[in-house]
Design a protein around this nucleic acid. Structure first.
Lengths: 346, 346
DNA sequence: TGCATCAGCCAAGGCGTTTTGAAAAGCCTT
DNA sequence: AAGGCTTTTCAAAACGCCTTGGCTGATGCA
């Protein structure tokens, strides 16, 4: 079927040792032989058997991504998918595989222990981290290389991570709205416990404060980001008086719900109400041209690539210090934002 | 770190052979020793090293899922995610892993060859099959166990597959609409080349014909299922005269676009226009209670489980004939359908 | 010339399993 | 007591790779 190291060495009249060393770039082999070996390897399409290799080296040549088993969770989350697609290209290029596994919520620590005891993976990626994340603690205790897609609480050093600058994103968005004259802004944020939601709130508040605007605390909401959440909330707020002139939505789904509620209330976008969203899923809901929604965007796919490289670097040289990357978001102007409507006289 | 077979056998005063056989259920070992071995294995939390095992057996103990590398493709598709979540539970339960890899579009065949030559996987799952699928041919030629999430053209035997009954789904939906008196139904189907779209069209047409209704061919459309597609198309059709009284959407995203366009046109759902969609993503857009949209649903997660079991069964006994499963859809009544508005007098 | 050094290569052992072929032990028969 | 079975056990080889330690012949130095 496929040629083995032994066969190749027999073919070349060399020992397995020499062929192995030649291919793996060890110095103790003459350049002439190395060239001959490499050429023969290519000709016979030799590829080392990853299983045998990792049995011998003790290295897994795989990075683990662990997903919660039940419920409408990460796996169904397009962000995760896009992140993995980005990471996947790097893994493939550098000869690593993905080890995808599913763990019951709450038993992740045990799962990690199993993964590492079995040497299934060389490193692990943590998705959707919480501020106080017991999974991160478990990983640190296990002395395994790991990286986080997001931040662990306020900490920004001592571990590998890739994060979009959530604070900057909301600052951009809030600045944009404030610049258009909006003062009554509703902020439909993500779940309160999650880090990125805190960061976003900080960004929102800092701009409001800088502009001497007073945020309406009743309009700052936290929930799972669903279309339903956006719709339900916007419907309620649009009935109130005064109502918001602008909505800041945490995701495209939330924005879609808001948009629907606003239309149903007989209001026009952006004449009566402006909508800005954070868009982390890019291509998932194709925007037209010009884009329908004004949105802040982060390069999720690139985030995956960056973290993959960071992890593999550290796996291959355990002495490397941990690295963190903060990716800058951009604001894409769309057709959903415009000047705030004139204030009704008080 | 973790105990090996050798250490366990030493501990028991038995040979590796006997311990191995005892644990793997071979008959040529006395019940007394087997019991002793199993008990010791549990006590020391022994788990065989999967790499060593598959090196020895030649079996990979993994199922491959190959995704297109570039573009807004499967990976970003929540259907795929949900399917994998379902399959994942079965893989884990039966001791298999997932091998997720990314192949450039058009070079999948080569990728499969590599996967099998390297014995990376014992079986492969094909996603989003086309009627004439060169990937399926490549897999068949390679003599590897594989299964399809969907159908290969009209063929319904000779290979493993799990499919939702697309035809039945559209029959259900069309019957529902026709029963409410709708005659002017627009059908926003998926891409023309894909199988499921053909099946769905057949279902739609068969009911129309059975009820002696004449479908408007100009209202039967095919495209990638995006929110934009739904919006664009519904906007156009709502401007026409006569306009459709009902829309049959291929996915929730399409339905969302339709819904938006209908609202923007100043029409009401379901008073002026009814909407039925096929919902393959279940929990992704949480519906309220009662559900917002009337929808046909298919159990994607269950589909993943079924195919996983079929594949592993065949891997473990290659003589088993291929199996196909067609899962029945259900119609979930929501708030988006109602009686057809009275005809304007002609 | 003798001795140490070094580049280049190799034989063999190890990674943790499964599996083959054979030996040992037990039980019947005769 | 010996032979023939069957049951139970084992030592060793294999899977395909990496790596340790050692071997050869050439080179440098004194």
């Amino acid at each position: 079927m496929t040629i083995s190291l032994k066969q190749l060495s027999l073919l070349l009249g060399l020992s397995q040792t020499t062929v192995s060393r030649a291919l793996n770039g060890y110095p103790e082999v003459s350049e002439a032989t190395r060239k001959r070996v490499i050429e023969a390897a290519q000709r016979h399409a030799y590829m080392p058997n990853p299983r045998a290799r990792s049995l011998a080296t003790g290295r897994a040549m795989a990075i683990g991504h662990v997903l919660p088993l039940a419920g409408p969770s990460d796996m169904v989350n397009p962000i995760f998918a896009d992140f993995l697609a980005g990471a996947g290209t790097v893994y493939t290029r550098r000869g690593y595989g993905v080890h995808l596994s599913f763990a019951e919520a709450g038993r992740e620590a045990e799962h990690f222990r199993w993964l590492t005891r079995q040497r299934m993976v060389d490193a692990v990626v943590l998705h959707s981290p919480r501020a106080e994340d017991e999974r991160a603690r478990a990983l640190a205790d296990l002395d395994i290389v790991f990286g986080v897609h997001g931040l662990l609480g306020a900490r920004r050093e001592g571990y590998n991570y890739v994060e979009m600058d959530n604070r900057a994103a909301m600052e951009l968005a809030t600045c944009h709205l404030a610049g258009l004259g909006h003062r009554r802004i509703a902020f439909l944020n993500g779940p309160a416990g999650l880090n990125f939601a805190r960061e976003r709130e900080a960004g929102f508040l800092s701009v409001m404060e800088a502009r001497s605007l007073v945020p309406n605390r009743l309009w700052m909401l936290n929930d799972e980001m669903s279309e339903d959440y956006g719709h339900r909330t916007a419907q309620r707020l649009c009935r109130g008086s005064p109502r918001p002139t602008a909505f800041l939505a945490g995701s495209i789904l939330v924005a879609a719900g808001v948009h629907r509620a606003v239309l149903e209330a007989g209001l026009r976008v952006p004449r009566d109400v402006s909508i800005v969203t954070h868009d982390d899923m890019l291509s998932f809901l194709p925007n037209g041209d010009p884009p329908r929604l004004t949105a802040t965007r982060s390069p999720v796919r690139e985030a995956g690539q960056r973290l993959a490289d960071i992890l593999i670097d550290q796996v291959e040289d355990r002495t490397r210090p941990p690295r963190g990357v903060i990716l800058a978001p951009e604001l894409v102007l769309g057709a959903s934002t415009g000047p705030a409507p004139a204030e009704a006289p008080a």
